[in-house]
Design a protein around this nucleic acid. Structure first.
Length: 477
DNA sequence: AGTTGCTTAGC
DNA sequence: CTAAGCAAC
């Protein structure tokens, strides 16, 4: 029988939902009264340059929904402003809470923050309990036969599946909503507006909040069977777009895993494998937090990337002269989202064609992506740069033109985001620089005027990339 | 989660 | 001459 607390706090962070929430379920079972609390941390907010920030808007609107749903239960959400290391213990003392419940976070910054919060709570005799919520297995639950962390994806996935079949570890966490604290005017912390926080409301291309997220999941169920066959074609819009919900916890990862079991198919297996990639990178980040600043593979740590600021800017603004790259970057800039196939294409282009340090691209995605997640973003970029855990081999370089032909054969995705090329037919639209003069003329494309000349020669840059990355001996202590 | 260039089979 | 197969990057 677990300890019972009179009052406790469920501190939500990147788990912005009420359904299937492990920490909330645990809190309501082990306490008589639970206060659901969120903290806006100015030290994080101040780092964000863009005051019309997608993720801040998403969080804020998701919190408003949580507050509304909690009020339907006679409770509310308490939103604090300040350094969690100070305001969580302060609030806990104010309401005389005996414990703080939270979902475990695996990012280095979050781990340090939670340790400090835990220490400060301890000084006041308050417990801090964190629970596995955002991944299926915690980093210590999966290890190689030698007891080391997995560094290669396929053995990781096999171990994950084996343990999953043994444990069926995706049960729904049910909360006892009767235990939610009554809305009490004497403990008033009004929800700050976006303006109070120094931000503007932003139009989001997808609806924030738990209800919208679970609707996305339900809609995706009908696409699951075809996922394997269709996922790679950006113009088809057949991916789940649930990365956003896993980032903010508006959908439970367990609910997603359960969906793949309820609708078994090759597509379901393929999508679950993508979810396991996500967990793989969470584990990598936990076990090797240095990947935040440096390459996972030690032989690439002192590489000097010759790429220029000018080329990086052309890439980021979508004017490289390679239509699939430009379409993808303009889509990112306009919506805060990019199809996974295109994330690989543009990352390969930046690191292998432009020979720019992958960290520049990683930082750019961090700024722009609505679904930005440190573990997945770093993992994806290091995969593309060939510097990561189980990376793309350095000699396996995407050709942006053949990627267009394979995955956007009609050119429809390009047409959607690079309207100045809309009248070009495939295959000319893959690479106008090599299109027949007549085709360009009839499509009113003037290279260097209406659409840029290619900023590099792929064949030459490919050789340079292989030369740059093959020099180093592959030795490890 | 690829691309390239060379070899060879088939017409 | 083209397509398919294969090794190397």
């Amino acid at each position: 029988m677990s300890v019972s607390y009179k009052r406790s706090i469920c501190w939500v962070r990147r788990d912005l939902r009420l359904f299937d929430h492990t920490a909330l379920a645990e809190a309501t079972y082990r306490s008589h009264e639970v206060f659901v609390v969120f903290v806006f941390d100015p030290t994080i907010l101040d780092l964000l340059e863009d005051r019309a920030h997608l993720r801040v808007s998403f969080i804020h609107r998701s919190l408003q929904e949580m507050d509304r749903k909690l009020r339907e239960q006679g409770s509310r959400l308490w939103v604090l402003l300040g350094n969690p290391a100070t305001v969580i213990p302060q609030f806990a003392k104010e309401i005389q809470a005996e414990a703080v419940f939270a979902s475990r976070d695996y990012e280095p910054f979050a781990r340090r923050r939670d340790l400090t919060v835990q220490e400060n709570l301890k000084l006041a005799g308050i417990e801090f309990l964190d629970f596995k919520d955002q991944i299926t297995f915690d980093p210590h639950e999966l290890a190689t036969a030698e007891g080391n962390p997995f560094r290669v994806f396929t053995p990781f996935r096999k171990a994950w599946e084996k343990l999953f079949i043994a444990d069926r570890d995706a049960a729904e966490a049910v909360s006892d909503l009767n235990k939610l604290a009554r809305d009490d005017e004497s403990i008033d912390y009004p929800m700050p507006s976006l303006k109070d926080l120094g931000f503007q409301e932003v139009e989001l291309w997808l609806e924030p909040g738990e209800d919208a997220g679970r609707k996305r999941l339900a809609n995706f169920a009908s696409k699951l069977a075809d996922y394997k066959a269709k996922r790679d074609f950006p113009a088809l819009d057949q991916t789940s777009t649930l990365s956003v919900d896993f980032r903010f916890g508006t959908v439970s990862i367990r609910e997603a895993i359960r969906l793949t079991l309820e609708h078994p198919s090759e597509g379901a297996d393929s999508w679950r494998s993508e979810l396991i990639w996500r967990e793989f990178y969470q584990h990598i980040l936990f076990h090797y937090p240095d990947v935040v600043d440096q390459t996972f593979q030690p032989q690439y740590r002192d590489i000097e990337y010759p790429g220029s600021k000018e080329d990086f800017e052309a890439w980021s603004e979508g004017r490289t002269g390679f239509p699939i790259v430009d379409a993808a970057m303009r889509c990112l800039n306009a919506t805060g989202w990019m199809h996974n196939r295109l994330r690989m294409v543009v990352a390969s282009f930046l690191t292998k064609d432009l020979l720019v340090d992958y960290r520049w691209g990683e930082a750019y995605f961090q700024r722009k992506l609505l679904d930005f997640d440190l573990a997945s973003n770093n993992g994806g970029w290091q995969w593309s740069a060939s510097t990561g855990a189980d990376p793309q081999p350095y000699f396996r370089i995407f050709n942006p033109i053949s990627q267009s032909a394979k995955f956007d054969s009609e050119g429809n995705f390009i047409r959607r985001w690079v309207p100045e090329l809309a009248d070009l037919e495939a295959p000319s639209i893959y690479f106008p620089a090599l299109a027949a003069e007549f085709d360009l003329l009839t499509a009113s494309v003037e290279l260097g005027k209406t659409y840029p000349h290619p900023i590099v020669d792929h064949a030459i840059q490919r050789d340079r990339a292989i030369a740059l990355l093959s020099k180093k001996p592959i030795t490890e202590s």
